[in-house]
Amino acid sequence: MDVHPRLTQGIEVEELGKTFGSGRRGASQVDAVAGISFRIAPGERCAFIGPNGAGKSTSIKMLTGILRPTSGKATVLGLVPWKERLRLARRIGTLFGQRSQLWFQLTPRRTYALLASMYGVSGADRDRRLGSLGKLLDATHLFDRPVRTLSLGERMRCELVASLLHEPEILFLDEPTIGLDLVAKTRFRDLIVRINEEQRTTIFLTSHDVSDIERVANRVIVINHGRIVFDDSVKVLRQSLLKRKLIGVLFEESVPTLSVEGAEVLSHDGAVAQLEVNTEVTPIRSVLDILLEQYPVADISVEDPPLEEIVSHMYERKA
């Protein structure tokens, strides 16, 4: 295979597949990942997204060496993850949103000391690193509080410090924003971008949250039923699919007719309505202005369409 030398330092995946199930008979087998291929260059911020059960976690676990694939090839930083797991582990960082690497009863600093000894980071390097990461992530004041006393948002920042302590070349994040409130989510996303920009750390992030992609990534791979259905820049995705916003409205009283310029009324039933706006054609602001001026609005919300819907749109476009 003719590979550009710079690329071997990123992530390379070719026809990677993982089949679960014990039997040799086909019936009980499930293709969690069904032959995916992609390349990620150093310094990229790639969102690897898909609905629940699409194969995201299985893929990220194969790339970090936790799982062995049943078919295909992959190299991360030039290493085969499941064969050279220990060597790879020294050079990558991982953060699993639903799993803590911090010791619950102890302070983050205690965990950092342990991790430093595992990764062979010297005491001086560790302190220097904690200083700069603490400043970057605004987390220094959290280092000496027992983890059990931290909020989820605070804890995730400390988790991030733990993942970055050994200066990894690639950071794998699996659903890192899950459970965070809106403010904490926004903040966390900004931090990941800063880490990428300031430290040139490659970011590989899985999520099923559309806004994670918009805020963090410059490249998106969408996976569904174990297959890649989209692989392009966020810009392209935004132009084609992320331009729609959903507006939910609750009126103070029943509204007989509803019509707003630039928006399509998806549903309207008395005092409740849902509208869709193509933000490329109409700015969301103008739709909101019209609604607030002309109707007795009690409550209003603006949301991205759920990922499931975006993915199904992709199929429609392909067909």
């Binding site: 582990a89 699993f96 690497q101």
Partner: peptide, 12 residues
């Protein structure tokens, strides 16, 4: 799958 925590570390 809590053994995942250990499998991402650079240790046996």
């Amino acid at each position: 799958s809590s053994i995942d925590e250990v499998l991402v570390l650079p240790v046996r």
